[in-house]
Design a protein around this nucleic acid. Structure first.
Lengths: 251, 251
DNA sequence: CGCTAATTTGAGTCCGTTCAAGGGCGGTGG
DNA sequence: CCACCGCCCTTGAACGGACTCAAATTAGCG
């Protein structure tokens, strides 16, 4: 397969992890949107922290893990973006992960990842030991609740994206994608009409199940309709409502 | 919207539930494939059973719940089949649920269902109180593990179906669907080459994001290639390997 | 500044949809 | 038991959107 990615991601992150000692949730900017959010300002936070293996940075284009990585760590994206590509179909992007997202929820059940996870830009990751976490849940009832809810919400989000992308025209898919990215930014408390796509056109088109050419044409078409403005990877939503309406309308 | 479905599903299943007192997991044929499977032959089973609200039957075409139903119960399909259709796009089938599947995992996070769930044939449902279950998980460590793994696996399954359906041609989508159904049968311990589709052509085509005509043509085309045999809703896989290969090949 | 890879644009083709009509199955009532 | 009817599924023909192939332009990077 590809020869560009790190030879042994598993070993890699363990060594990389040592580059940063920072694993204090109390000092993490993400705390109030993360699994232990209910523990802020309580004396239970250190209990959760004992499951945190550490933080580390990863460069653009580097693999976080491969489809042969055994599952033992859950990753939280502190900053940056990742893409998941499938082993079976290289040209198939399974998901994107943004700041605040958990990576590995789909791997819990089979104790094995089934996709390569690649950083799209320099990113920072927090690693949580799953077995330790599972044990701690009994003492951290709120975290138990949040954890299960998080998996559920991520599942729901997948289903919704699924529905839109499956049934719509290229225009609808692209609109849905832009709104999806916008939603991610909003969740992070950033401006949601002005955005910089962290991934290239090819990645987007693969994700949408569309040819890159069709994507390109659609973007210019939406620009001409004054619904968006495109400048390379910088996209501005000029008419949010009109874009939203496109999703539910016939065509 | 449609006026055919039960006026108030929430009230409905509570009354229907009384029709059957059977809520003994120990007497359930599904036990070894269900959440409390690790508790079989232990004295912990009654603890789990205390979260089971009851069993009830539901007729073909009836709603199990609507998109306005507040989430409080998790449903386990004891027998039969269900489809989930989206509120926003009536013609969009979000998922199928088979014997052994859990219904409601996507609703946990937002405490609200977002699709109508309709029985495709006469089916039997087991209802579990989610909050009770959550409390019990501390005492039932194995169930806690299984429960989270189940959500994870269901999520993974969605992602995989998603990937195939999104990227493939109609042939690939149809092949993937047939293999998916086959997989379900296998999981249930039934013959997996010979199957009866519980849903109509329109439901399948909606699920695959394809016109009913295309689906029909594809089925006859696959028949002519001797890959399958179709007789109404009865489908036989004549060449399992060839069908599998179709998923990964270019076209 | 020049290279390479990514993106855009253009033209032609094909696949899947749409629209329309014909069959077949199951249900209902005589 | 059989005839009728409605619905679902299949088949056919024509259209259209998205893909493919090919070329030009642009961005990113040393």
């Amino acid at each position: 397969m590809a020869d560009k990615h790190s030879p042994d991601p598993v070993e890699n992150y363990i060594s990389l992890m040592r580059l940063r000692g920072e694993s204090k949730c109390s000092e993490c900017a993400l705390l109030n949107r993360c699994l232990p959010r209910s523990l802020a300002d309580t004396n239970l936070l250190p209990i959760f922290e004992s499951a945190v293996s550490g933080n580390f940075a990863i460069d653009a284009g580097e693999d976080l893990l491969s489809d042969e990585t055994k599952f033992s760590l859950l990753f939280i994206v502190k900053s940056g973006t990742f893409k998941a590509i499938n082993r079976i179909n290289e040209a198939n992007i399974q998901a994107f992960y943004f700041s605040g997202n958990l990576i590995g929820l789909e791997a819990i059940g089979q104790r094995q990842f089934d996709s390569r996870i690649i950083a799209l830009e320099r990113s920072v990751i927090c690693a949580v030991d799953y077995d330790k976490l599972l044990d701690l849940l009994n003492r951290l009832n709120q975290v138990k609740k949040h954890f299960i809810e998080t998996i559920s919400l991520q599942h729901l989000e997948s289903l919704r994206l699924f529905a839109i992308i499956r049934s719509g025209s290229v225009q609808q898919r692209v609109a849905a994608f832009l709104l999806f990215i916008s939603e991610q930014q909003k969740r992070r408390g950033q401006a949601f009409l002005d955005m910089v796509l962290p991934m290239g056109r090819t990645d987007i088109s693969n994700f949408l199940g569309v040819s890159p050419e069709s994507l390109s044409r659609t973007l210019t078409s939406l620009s001409k309709k004054r619904l968006i403005k495109v400048f390379n990877r910088r996209v501005t939503l000029m008419n949010y409502d009109a874009l939203s309406k496109m999703l539910s309308e016939a065509d």
